[in-house]
Design a protein around this nucleic acid. Structure first.
Lengths: 155, 155
DNA sequence: ATTGTCGTCATACCTTCGGATGATTTTGGG
DNA sequence: CCCAAAATCATCCGAAGGTATGACGACAAT
């Protein structure tokens, strides 16, 4: 199930980090085993335990920090004082219809309600929103709203 | 560990791993300190190292996450003039946890991601959000975000 | 006339959300 | 200590959202 290729989105959670930690632990353990043959000291277990503990605790903290920092990272191009929304829109290749739908999504409407409001089918709304999410790099509508507001695409 | 590849629906979160790690770490430490001379097995080093590595990496991640989260919160007097409007909150009977989850929903996170951030199960997040929607009068999470911002519950 | 973009719609399939309900555990106050 | 509120976790199930793919007509630009 987890091995099914995700075409887009690249969702990775804390589990992956934990898995990485476990793998790293195994790796270090192997490394330690090889080293253990030459360095048979009485307190090697405690020493190595403490070392590994400190190392991985630091690694974990670093990982957590970078992860949260990446999530707290706001807009992509903060360069310049101000870039008008239209520029960002054309940069992302967002069409007027998609922008319209983004506004309605931000207003808390469902796809069905948007479809009724625009007199189109729900499938059309889905298509637009799907392409919109793709251009915005969002995987959920809430995320699309968040990114859209950050990019000043919507008030 | 077992929870990295579990079927969807039921999943005990990282907390169990943490708890397991703590218990195992303590147990092994006590074992080491008291009578490890009798139980010196060849695998004890691997097990010990792996456990400590996993435990402390998880602990480090948790530390980094919670530290950054807590540090980001208490910024009321200096810069953030945002007051969560406690009157409205108590009027609606919204608990702190529900408010916290509302913020994460507004950040565009999925239930699963919120669960991972808060170290609880997805079911818990669903329960909280469900009650939150009930109190807010929202039917969708996008609507909850909208209403929450209107009521100045979230920035 | 060909090409490209946009808007429209559809089908199929999977994931995520949300409601309803019940239960247990933690926690703080009287 | 006991109680109430809050928090946690679970299962079932339907609804909504999202992906992938294909198709068609309108329209503008080359």
């Amino acid at each position: 199930m987890a091995s099914t290729a995700k075409p887009r989105g690249t969702r990775r959670a804390l589990r992956d980090i934990l898995l990485f930690g476990v793998c790293g632990g195994l790796l270090i353990t192997v490394l330690k085993l090889t080293e253990y043959r030459f360095l048979v000291v009485e307190h090697s277990v405690e020493i190595y335990g403490g070392l590994v503990a400190a190392l991985f605790s630091a690694l974990g903290i670093w990982l957590g920090l970078t992860l949260t920092r990446k999530k707290a990272e706001p807009s992509l191009p903060p360069t310049g004082p101000f870039t008008p929304n239209e520029r960002r829109i054309s940069e992302l290749g967002i069409t007027p219809r998609e922008l319209e739908i983004l506004g309605l999504i931000a207003a808390g409407l469902s796809n069905r309600e948007i479809a009724d409001h625009l007199f189109v089918s729900e499938n059309t709304v889905k298509t637009h929103s799907s392409r919109l999410f793709d251009k915005l790099g969002a995987r959920r509508r809430t995320q699309a709203v968040q990114l859209g507001k950050q990019a000043h695409l919507i008030p």
